[in-house]
Design a protein around this nucleic acid. Structure first.
Lengths: 231, 231
DNA sequence: ACCTGAACACCGTTCAAGT
DNA sequence: ACCTGAACACCGTTCAAGT
């Protein structure tokens, strides 16, 4: 399987990024090294640097590919901003949860590519078109945070406590030390026996609670008082 | 400065972790490699593995050290849960913002150490003592997400768009393509000329909006209907 | 009990050269 | 214009050995 391939098509940025996405999907994000990706493409590592500036640029490209996958949300009347926001963010979520690497990569991005700005612009416009002030819209965007990508951090994953640290002092933590956490996880077990947390439910709950809070702020004519003018 | 030191005190986990924290504070988290840390301690890299299981365990230890720094919050009457929560999370925030590496390291943790569970327990108890159901408390914890550590993701950092990617197609993005983002950043400039986003303000705004939403859910007797019993 | 030396199997990226 | 070879300066971690 090596040396018998047809002459390769020349690489380009899109092919490199697509291969990185496929590699991350198949073998996890840790498999996406410049060297591993190059081997996947049948090319020497340095060849990639003609198409991406560096590894950060490659990861930025992967996020751009994610955004390109997100469903175009049909425009709703501005009045229905709550439903419009929900549809858009659940659409983003459907893409993000289909790529196991997506959350972590998004969280580590420090630059804002045009595609990222496009997505942020679309979310922003939902509020502005609905008549939100620029001021409130600004702070609402901060409040949404990574929810604009359709995810929120996982607070309880796997069981409480971790596997088997060796030199660390403790083994499995004693649930008796965490009666509150025990109470809420026990309650959850009552409702969905044998299952972990339902992340879709958590996302919707959080989003809806935030939407309610936003709607109230807006109705109340919320404004960030200019610090300079506060005596 | 090498070979002339007094005979070293034996290492232990606490000294290793403290050195990692100091190194991250001084030179950034990227300087915290097993090799770099070992050199800092005047020891060969392998010596560290007697005190931490691996690098993940070292990073877990750094988060534990962070938690140990958090101010003990004086107990308030359960009725004042909103103020109690605010004080606790702003206390956590004061520590997290004092270590530039803290956000990123917290975001990458996958195990829950006893210290992490302790902190989660403390937050959980604020709700339970105030009479929240275990059910609502559970989902509220998910909603708070990393806000229990006193931070939320940075949506707009630096200016919009990034520095100078080379092979990527665009240079600086044209603000005309992002009229909504332009509108909200222009509005922000009006209010705080020359300044970036006030993260403390964003954190408080988001937290207070969420607290309001939570309080309303509770007053409404919110419950997650058990899926099994919904006809 | 605690630390060391040498090695293994990797990284991202540069430089100068090839076609 | 696009790709290659060799090298540089790193990683985390193992194994067997030293004191």
């Amino acid at each position: 399987m090596r040396g018998t391939e047809a002459p390769r098509k020349p690489l380009n940025r899109a092919r490199v990024v697509a291969a990185a996405v496929a590699l991350a999907d198949d073998e996890g994000i840790d498999a996406v090294s410049m060297r591993g990706l190059a081997e996947d493409l049948g090319v020497v590592p340095m060849a990639l640097y003609k198409h991406v500036a560096d590894k950060e640029d490659l990861l930025d490209g992967m996020v751009d590919a994610l955004i390109a996958e997100m469903p175009a949300t049909p425009p709703l009347p501005p009045r229905q901003w709550q439903e419009g926001l929900r549809v858009m963010l659940l659409g983003a979520r459907s893409v993000v949860i289909s790529h196991a690497w997506a959350r972590r990569v998004i969280e580590t991005r420090t630059s804002r590519t045009p595609a990222v700005l496009d997505h942020m612009e679309r979310v922003t416009q939902i509020f502005l078109r609905a008549g939100f002030s620029a001021d409130l819209t600004h702070h609402v965007m901060h409040l949404l945070g990574n929810r604009i990508w359709g995810f929120s951090p996982e607070l309880f994953n796997e069981s409480a406590g971790s596997a088997d640290r060796k030199p660390g002092k403790g083994g499995t933590p004693d649930p008796a030390n965490y009666p509150g956490i025990l109470a809420i996880t026990a309650d959850a077990q009552t409702r969905r026996p044998g299952a972990g947390c339902d992340e879709d439910f958590e996302f919707a709950f959080g989003l809806d609670t935030i939407i309610d809070g936003i709607a109230r702020r807006r109705r109340a004519g919320w404004t960030s008082t200019k610090p300079k003018e506060k005596p």
